[in-house]
Structure formats: C-alpha cells, structure tokens
Write a protein that binds this DNA or RNA. Structure first.
Lengths: 131, 131
DNA sequence: GACACTTATATGTATTTAACATATGTTTCG
DNA sequence: CGAAACATATGTTAAATACATATAAGTGTC
C-alpha cells in the first residue's frame, strides 16, 4: 500500500505555490471547550461528539483516536464522568456527562476565549490601520 | 543549582486547586502573524521584536531562543530578508524586512484570523445561549 | 448465514509547536 | 574594571496534534 510520505505541510502553514502559502488560524486545544459545551448541553457518547464537533470547530473533523484519549484524560481530571450503556441500540457506548468541575472549567474557557478574541481584534485593527 | 522539575501545568490548562483549573486560549503560532505585522510597519531586528511582541500577544513574552530560530526559518521560506547592521549604536544587529511573499502571507493570516474569530464568536454565542 | 458497511472505542507512533535551559560576544555606564 | 543591558544563537524536553491501524458489535442485504 502506497503510503504518502508525511512531514511537510504537516500543519498550520503550508506551501501551495512558489511564493504562496496557506494558513490556518486555530485556537490551541479548542476541542476541549467544544467538548465541554456539547456535554453541558446534554450527556453524549464519543462517536456522537465526533459528528458534532465539526459544527463548532469550523467544519474540521477531529482525530478520532485523540478524541477518545482526550475524553479519558478529562475523566481522569474529574471534568467528565462516564458510564457504559449496552442497552441503547447499536454497539455499547460510553456516555459522558459534565461534572460540576467541568462546568466551571467551561466558564474559564469562555473567559479565556473572550480575551483571545480581543487580542485577535486588536491585531486586525492594527493590521487594517496600516493597509 | 536546583532545577525546577518541569512537566506539569506546562501549557494551556493548569490545575490551581482541587477542582479548579486555569486556562489560556491562544491562537496557534500567533507569533508568526505578529512578527509579519511588526515587520510590515517597518524593518526591525530581533531584539526589538522581542520587546514589541508582548504588545500584540496579550502581554506574554515570547521565548527569545525560539524567536531567532523562527526568524531564520521565515527567511529560509522567503518571507523575510535580513541584513547585518554593524553601524547602528550597540552590538551588531541583524535587521529583518518583510518580502512581498511575506506581505501576502500576512494577508492570508488576517483572513484566517477573521475566520477564527467568527468561530470563537459562534462558540461564545452558543455558550451564552445555554446559560 | 456470509458479506460488506456502519457504529463505536481504542492504541501506536511521528511530527510540530512551544517551553525551558544555556552559551557567547558586544556595548554602555558607574 | 565589572556589572548590567543589548543582541544573537543552539540544545533539549514536553505538549499538542496528525496520521495509522486494531478490534468488535450491530445492521442490512443477497
């Protein structure tokens, strides 16, 4: 099986021509607040989150493997709690719900995101001013 | 010399209490557009950029070592160009200026940052709606 | 009931980005 | 002179993310 060699254009900045670059501006670890928000709305299982996350993160699909690891790490930190549900239709699912700590963390994220948005706005104003 | 063990609270999320977390929301590689903007305004040398960057990146000081590496990487990609200036007062400085490619890249960054800001706004609206 | 397909969760590993540490030389100023 | 500030640079580790692959149960279909 032909394996695409990886290593270049691996992430945020990518060459698309001799003097052309494409960039993606993303908030670091944005999946975390996204997960928390989705779980605050109601308990959900991993696969459901995978389908819903692109709606919050600019259409970008998240890495499946990392998501499950992420969820268990959050559980380890007491931010979410999970339970197996074998009764629901389909394969057994692990349903996650947000803890009180998790809700508080989401609030922190919201504050941080507002501050980040301010920074970006200040940047853009300065940029537009000099055009 | 006592070396502080590093590894925990290393980046965006940090435990500050039993059920308390502090978070920082940052745009990935935000130093890049910041550098480009500062260099678009006028050519500058590395040390000057170090002093000016916190004004764009929420007061956070950037890592000195990484910055110089960053600048040379940008030069390798044709985004900036540099020249030694031994004539100016103080130690010899390498003065960087933005190339045309760099200006175009900055425009790309501005677009990307506007999109990112939209995402964050959408997130916050959804968050505030459910409070 | 064999088979492909979807749903669901999980681990392995490489790469990129950022943090932390340290080295080296020059200039300024008391 | 010696300390502090100016200026650039390399080495190394940890965190975040991308990419690859494994495993198993349920669903529909011929």
């Amino acid at each position: 099986m032909q394996r695409r060699p990886h290593g270049r254009g691996y992430r945020s900045r990518q060459r698309i021509g001799p003097n052309e670059w494409a960039v993606r501006a993303r908030v670091e670890r944005f999946v975390e607040p996204s997960l928390l928000l989705l779980l605050k709305e109601r308990p959900r299982h991993g696969y459901e989150l995978i389908e819903l996350l692109p709606g919050l993160a600019g259409g970008e699909r998240v890495d499946v493997g990392n998501l499950y690891r992420f969820l268990r790490a959050l559980e380890g930190d007491g931010i979410v709690e999970s339970e197996w549900h074998g009764d629901l239709p389909g394969p057994a699912k692990r349903t996650y719900r947000l803890t009180e700590t998790g809700e508080h963390l989401l609030d922190q994220w919201a504050d941080a995101l507002r501050r980040s948005r301010e920074e970006v706005s200040a940047f853009l104003e300065r940029y537009e001013g000099g055009e």
